[in-house]
């Protein structure tokens, strides 16, 4: 691809690139010996990040019916039988559709949350409240499917896995805009 005419230009460029590489190497050893390089398996064990496009989701699957039973055991005590929440303490998981532009806005999984992966991630990392991190991936897929079904987002026959979950389009997927500062104009 490089025609000979570019050759004289190329050599100085290469020199600069090499210098930059050396500078980068220097930056990496600015504080030599501080911190321990870690191997991939250590990272893999610690890395619980789930991205909105599904990267980081573990292999597994679960359906609405399995989720219904698991929800009853693990979630209903606080979020109530049908996800309606309890005593204004624990948040409702359902309802609120069509309320976001009203004074009685109700933010739930169904009305507000933009990504289905966030439902999976929230359950996996922080639920049930008194015993977080104990549900197996299959159980988290199942409870996620049930909670989405409670909101009418997936049918009663739905099974979800690491491939299909990120494809679920949440009703409020396009409900968020990046903040621009400042947005309030005070008058003197």
């Amino acid at each position: 691809m490089c025609k000979p005419v570019f050759k004289p230009v190329f050599k100085p460029v290469l020199k600069i690139v090499l210098l930059l590489c050396a500078a980068t190497a220097f930056a990496q050893t600015k504080y030599p010996g501080v911190g321990k390089p870690v191997a991939a398996d250590r990272v893999k064990a610690a890395d619980k990040t789930v991205m909105a496009d599904g990267r980081g989701l573990p292999a597994g699957k679960g359906n609405v019916e399995t989720g219904r039973a698991l929800y009853k055991t693990n979630c209903a005590e606080c979020h109530n039988e049908a996800g309606e929440g309890r005593d204004k303490q624990w948040p409702a998981l359902v309802g609120g559709t069509g309320t976001l532009a009203t004074k009685a806005a109700k933010k739930t999984v169904g009305s507000y949350w933009p990504y289905a992966t966030t439902v999976w991630d929230t359950i996996a990392r922080s639920m049930p409240y008194n015993n977080p991190g104990t549900l197996k991936p299959d159980e988290v897929y199942a409870i996620t499917a049930f909670v989405l079904h409670l909101n009418g987002i997936v049918p009663a026959t739905q099974e979800l896995d690491e491939k299909s979950l990120p494809l679920v389009k949440m009703p409020n997927r396009d409900g968020f805009i990046p903040t621009v500062h400042p947005d309030v104009n005070a008058k003197r």
Binding site: A101, A105, P114, Y115, T118, D121, T122, F176, P178, T179
Partner: peptide, 26 residues
Amino acid sequence: EPAQSNQETAHYTDLLPNGKARQFSF
């Protein structure tokens, strides 16, 4: 990209009168 974690979607987002929410207000 951001993770779109619970705390940056379900919470800590600013719902406006038109039903849209400002995100990453920081």
